[in-house]
Amino acid sequence: MALSTPSSSSVRAAETVRSGLTARQSDPFGRAFQVSLWVAVLATVAILGVLIFDVVTHGWGVLAGETGDFLTGRLGSQPENSGLGQAIRGTFYIGVFVVVLTFPLGIAAAIYLEEYAQHGRLNSLISVAIRNLAGVPSVVYGILGLTIFVKALGSVTGPDANGRTVVSAGLTLSILVLPIVIITAAEALRAVPNGIREGGFGVGATRWEVVRSHVLPYAAPGILTGTVIALARALGEAAPLILVGATTGFLTGGESFLPDSLRERFTALPIVISTWSGRPGEDWAASTSAAIVVLLVIVFAANLAAIVLRNRFERGRR
């Protein structure tokens, strides 16, 4: 059209173009789409906000009251005389197991997959196995723990407690989070620029020397992030502990942090939360909320540490 317009009307043509380019385009569908995205985002954030607000307001009374007793006391039949001492101890030991067993094992496996493994049937089988293990429901790991650590190895994990001990729980959860550690550590190793490896090989370093001196230090923040997230996951898991036989009612003992007590019966924070959730009445709900706040503080602190580490790491690299 415009191309065939005689030059006498070119002023009018210019006017048309200008108005076409400057007019505010109405795009109701695009607007609506963007608004619905905002709604999705806000709803997600709001859910998180409501959840945290809900447990904090409900649990505040219990936490603000005699926090000392609540944090150190034993499990009881009434909300007033129930404390988290034994549960915190169990959760603490589970964390120790994960740190001591899963971190080195998972990082070593990741090093093999990223730095040593060549293409081959066995190695691809290993990576398929790891990816699938990451998707196995946690309750199935509980069945593994029940069969192997509680029943088959009960005489080792807890001769006086039918194997239903924090040792069994720690081993089970260490295995549960192993694929998470491997996958995140492998990602961190993959992000190491190849030039660093070549530089090492170029001056005659062995594979292990290159990994130890250059690859691991470079990947360390990323690996740490992944391991901390895995730790948080282990501390919050409850389903496998039910199968492994965490105590839900009364518990004698289970308070000592001495290694001897590892082969006694145990409980853990997520288990206590699960059990108390089912008890009727406002008081139990308040105690449960308070226990949740304690668990969330532990888990968030770990996640927060991971996020801060990663941000610092990304900033340092650019």
């Binding site: 997600t44 447990v55 409850a238 959730s277 969330l296 888990v299």
Partner: peptide
Amino acid sequence: EVLAGIPSVVLGFF
């Protein structure tokens, strides 16, 4: 990520 880190028992209670 914080939401992803919330243990499932907490969501159960919620």
